[in-house]
Design a protein around this nucleic acid. Structure first.
Lengths: 210, 210
DNA sequence: TATGAAGTGTAACTTTTGTTACTGCCAACT
DNA sequence: AGTTGGCAGTAACAAAAGTTACACTTCATA
């Protein structure tokens, strides 16, 4: 684990902190599709992403989903940060988008480190800032864009985080994450294909140029 | 100013911190409609709300607005918190919804206090949490609700923060904040009036029961 | 009092999005 | 080979939201 830490966080945390993380953290590997946290769960530890991608989802009363944003290498979960202190429940669901490796830190340490290490504080604040920014972008998309534009953004985003121009999703899955219907997604995807921007296959979409 | 501080923050901050805030903070009064910060501005000080309401808005490329949430007594601005450290520009606009009193704290102190006072850290984290939660609610509204339901929520919210069942807004203003058109707002308001839930006047709306 | 600007009400229409229903296709399994 | 279930394509329709246009009211002020 130490090698992961040094690789990803040397220029962020001082050696002493890295050593502490190494002491109390535990390595966790999650497979694609595996759920990390559910809405209503209490948060017991804080994740540091070593590799992979986690998608963060919101849900309404009917069980309909909406993709909020992705967490990538070097990120942590903003929800966790506050939940730890406030003892409140999670308002989001977190699912591994691809196979992911993370280091879990017991929440007790959080409070301690926040007082002790300036670099830790900066990391936490930067995480908050990053998450807020992503939330703003999500809001912009939903509020200001039409579904076709949102779909394009979604595909671009997916391509970026998975680093793969072949997206392995069904139309139904995409519809869930954008909170629309399968028919609408199929319709818009077909339009994008006829424009030569993507190619459609069963269970996957190839991005040509968006 | 000390009296404001003691009144609003005694059970939150220790005396020593209250004293420090009193030393370096400056009292600021803003009138209804006055702009506190604009998108792209650099943030130079952090506000503590003593009384009044601040509305936080987001804007798209065309200059269209969207209301994100309100800040009330005891709140602070999450944007400020991260902007200070990261030296980034504001991504939101802040406008006084009603006459408002705040204490402005120079950003240099933030970093210092975060290391020094546990209560300050908790306050900052709680602020983040509150703001994140409000952002989630905003996203829920935009993504999951139809315009008529969003309008009702908007009116309820406005009534709550202003503590007044008479809302002094034109249909156009409401349309801006919900990012829709005036005609749509008029249409839906008329429907609410015919249901006996509100009464419509020129430049104002009286809430009966929502 | 006349004028004009801003606010509101409403009709008619278009666009966007969502829904229902049915088709064919593919892949896994018996 | 035949069956089945999930996936995708598409038409036809419905609902929601946005647009344009115009009439009428209120109010400040020339």
């Amino acid at each position: 684990m130490l090698h992961y830490l040094k690789e990803n966080f040397t220029n962020i945390f001082e050696d002493e902190l890295i050593e502490e993380i190494n002491q109390v953290g535990t390595l966790k590997e999650v497979k694609e599709g595996e759920k990390l946290i559910e809405i209503g769960d209490y948060v017991r530890s804080m994740p540091l992403l070593i590799s992979g991608v986690i998608k963060i989802l919101r849900e309404d009363e009917d069980g309909d989903e909406l993709l909020l944003y992705f967490l990538e290498r070097g990120d942590t979960c903003a929800m966790t940060l506050t939940c730890c202190l406030g003892q409140t429940k999670s308002e989001i669901r977190a699912i591994a988008e691809i196979d992911t490796t993370l280091i879990m830190i017991p929440i007790q340490k959080m409070e301690e480190w926040t007082g002790k290490y300036k670099t830790w504080r900066n990391f936490v604040f930067q995480s908050y800032h990053a998450r807020l920014t992503e939330m703003f972008e999500t809001i912009d998309s939903i509020a200001f864009l039409k579904m076709d534009e949102r779909l394009v953004k979604y595909l671009q985003n997916k391509q970026k985080v998975t680093n793969d121009s072949l997206i392995n999703s069904t139309h139904q899955e995409i519809a869930y994450e954008l909170h629309t219907s399968r028919v609408v997604v199929s319709r818009l995807l077909k339009k994008l294909e006829s424009l030569g921007k993507i190619e459609l296959y069963r269970n996957s979409i190839k991005i040509i140029s968006l």
